[in-house]
Amino acid sequence: MGLFIAQAQAAAGFLSIAEDVPLMPGLAESPEAATVFDKPSGRIANTEAKGAVTAAAVRQFYAATLPQLGWQSAGAERYRREAELLRLSFTGRDGALTVRFELLPNQ
Rank of each mutant, 00 (worst) to 15 (best):
R80S: 13
E48M: 11
G75A: 00
T35S: 13
E84Y: 04
L23T: 03
R100L: 01
G26R: 13
L15E: 01
S89N: 14
L103I: 15
M24G: 01
G42L: 05
A28K: 12
A11D: 00
L15F: 09
G51S: 08
K50W: 00
T91K: 15
A63S: 14
L103A: 11
A33T: 07
A83I: 14
F61R: 04
Y62H: 06
P40S: 12
A74D: 04
Q7I: 10
R59N: 03
A6K: 10
V58N: 02
A12H: 06
L69F: 15
T98R: 10
A12D: 08
S89T: 09
K39F: 14
L15D: 02
T47G: 12
T98D: 09
R59K: 09
A49K: 05
K50Y: 02
L104S: 15
T91V: 02
F101L: 07
Q107F: 13
R59L: 00
T98S: 09
R43G: 03
D94Q: 05
L85I: 05
G92S: 05
F4C: 14
A49F: 06
Q60D: 10
V58E: 01
I17M: 00
P40H: 14
R78F: 03
L66M: 03
K50D: 05
A49Q: 04
A11K: 02
R87M: 08
K50T: 13
Q60M: 04
R93I: 06
N46F: 04
E77Y: 03
S73Q: 15
G42C: 06
R100T: 07
Q72F: 04
F14Q: 15
E77I: 02
V36N: 00
A63M: 06
S30F: 06
R87S: 11
N46Y: 00
L104N: 11
S89V: 06
A34K: 04
E82V: 11
G75Q: 06
E29K: 03
E29S: 08
T47N: 05
V36P: 00
I5D: 14
A64D: 13
L66T: 04
A10K: 14
K39V: 14
S89H: 14
G75C: 05
V21I: 11
K39M: 14
W71V: 01
L3K: 15
R80C: 10
W71H: 06
W71Y: 07
I17V: 07
A55M: 13
S30T: 15
R93S: 15
V36W: 03
D20T: 09
P31V: 02
A64S: 13
Q7C: 13
G51R: 08
L86S: 03
G70E: 07
Q60V: 05
M1F: 06
Y62F: 11
D38S: 15
N46E: 12
A56M: 01
A49G: 09
A12W: 02
A64G: 03
